[in-house]
Design a binder for these strands. Sequence first.
DNA 1: ATGAAAGCGCTAACAG
DNA 2: CTGTTAGCGCTTTCAT
Lengths: 331, 331
Amino acid sequence: MVKMKDVALKAEVSQATVSRVINGSTYVEPYTRQKVLDVIEELGYKVNSAAKALSSKKSSVIAVILPDISNPYFAEILNVIENEAYQSGYKVIFMNSQGNEHKEKKLIDNILKYKPLGVVLSPLDDEENYSKKLIENKIPVVTMGKLSQNFSGVSINHKVGGELLAKHFVSLGHEKIGYIGNKDDKFKGFKDGLASLNVNLKDENCIDFYNYSSINIKEAVYSSLEKYLKKHKKFDFTAIFTGNDIVAMEVINFFRDKGIKVPEDIAVAGFDNISFTSYLSITTVAQPVREIAFLAFERLMMEAKSGNKEIKHIEILPRLIPRDSTVKFFK
Amino acid sequence: MVKMKDVALKAEVSQATVSRVINGSTYVEPYTRQKVLDVIEELGYKVNSAAKALSSKKSSVIAVILPDISNPYFAEILNVIENEAYQSGYKVIFMNSQGNEHKEKKLIDNILKYKPLGVVLSPLDDEENYSKKLIENKIPVVTMGKLSQNFSGVSINHKVGGELLAKHFVSLGHEKIGYIGNKDDKFKGFKDGLASLNVNLKDENCIDFYNYSSINIKEAVYSSLEKYLKKHKKFDFTAIFTGNDIVAMEVINFFRDKGIKVPEDIAVAGFDNISFTSYLSITTVAQPVREIAFLAFERLMMEAKSGNKEIKHIEILPRLIPRDSTVKFFK
DNA sequence: ATGAAAGCGCTAACAG
DNA sequence: CTGTTAGCGCTTTCAT
């Protein structure tokens, strides 16, 4: 492997000079500069990132930790970040926490070895899991989707998202309503929203479902729905809000299998607005995912470069996208 | 940052010994070993990957280069590889070539700096783009989806995939048939398959469409379809095969917008069998994506560890999944 | 079984 | 403006 020394020798300059022209850290005589550049080209020299990182004490990798890359919502985030990183000359180490807090914790442990420039994280529930080590090691972090008290973050306001759907359902005349998902902020917004419109979301109609990973999600959704049916004989609601679009799709599938018509018998709404919901015409709440990812990246860069440690939370308002799964022929 | 030297000092051993217990390279007295382990725990020591890589001349990162992470087919590949890599103690640097050969080339250039253990690549069309530098630098490579003469690879047989669909269309009684996509192996298989069944695939019904990136894919599909319409007034076929599932979805959308019924007026079939096709009941050709990714990773590991340079091509047979978009009420 | 020491390829004072 | 030099944190002979 050709190294800097080889370039220096052939260009008849010192290694330091080669380093200078590569990094543009200091002014180098144009002639010398060109000569070095030529030799680099000729020899096909490539810096050794490991050596560079070790010596300069900074790396050019950004770690991206996401719960489920098979969910197009997160895939889109990775898409944006990889693209931005590429344009800024950084590399992305991608890690999939798979909705598993234990794995998330190990991933963060692991990533510390690489001393990344920063990490973009779409965290699972338990803040304890990730914050401590990251803070200790002074690694800039920006979260997406959930806001953390220790780091900057970008997210839609999930409560408002839930409220939007509550209003939508009530305006459509629904009185018996269901929910399937975990009891997060959008659930709270949904429940509170309904309450403020004098509709009670019964506990028994809130089907607990916690599953970030889309592998086996069908089985998971089907089994929790079957469990509900076993207990209550029939679905005691005319509209249901699901934790995310993938779950919505599975719920619709399940209903179809059971001969339940959507939206005539039961209306279904999802969350995220992944592109596939438009093909299926599923009502959902839009998260401007590309914007979220972009802002997160931008903020991370700012903190990494300036060393600014101020915590900034950016909140974006979600938007309701009504489609056929709640209102027939909406289109 | 606590380093090996700190551990060595506190454990009252040499730095070399600490290195030994961490890497298990040589036998270390159990007592000493335990003492070192305790200190590591106590101090929260983490190796510095850069230093390790520089010193040992081997890294623990695997580069994954894919054309479009927003396409669930590729997202699934990344999912599998990240997971396998994690379990084997490796990190994944992810790069999105975005269907852009120029970017793919630059990405490969870039990745060389990191001296990755290996690269898993789903290449675009031009082999020249990627093979040379990778070979020069002796980096193990396994391709997926396309087989390269210079590297090992895993792929379904695309020709057979195209033939499968040809048979399917003909058995359904179609005689006027269309194609939208780029003219790759599956196109050849499709065309030849039709020919062998005495059906001619007219050139004018082969709509050229080259677009790996799913951003703006809607516009791209719509405009090429509009262009066809402008020229021919109406669609002169009763069945169309699309390059991949995403394109199939857009085509179906387009037809719906135009009041064309699928499959009654025109049958549509895709390629890949991404999970969303099942929700939409789109006929497609299944690529066992998880298996492909797994085999590619496995093969890469083998080559990276053993230094085995033998080129092995694994070909998997695709499977037709007939659904409602070609045969109503198939389910 | 363990320690000493050289060196991986690069950056960053420092000196001139 | 450019060369010299001292590390960065770790692995790996080579001794003992």
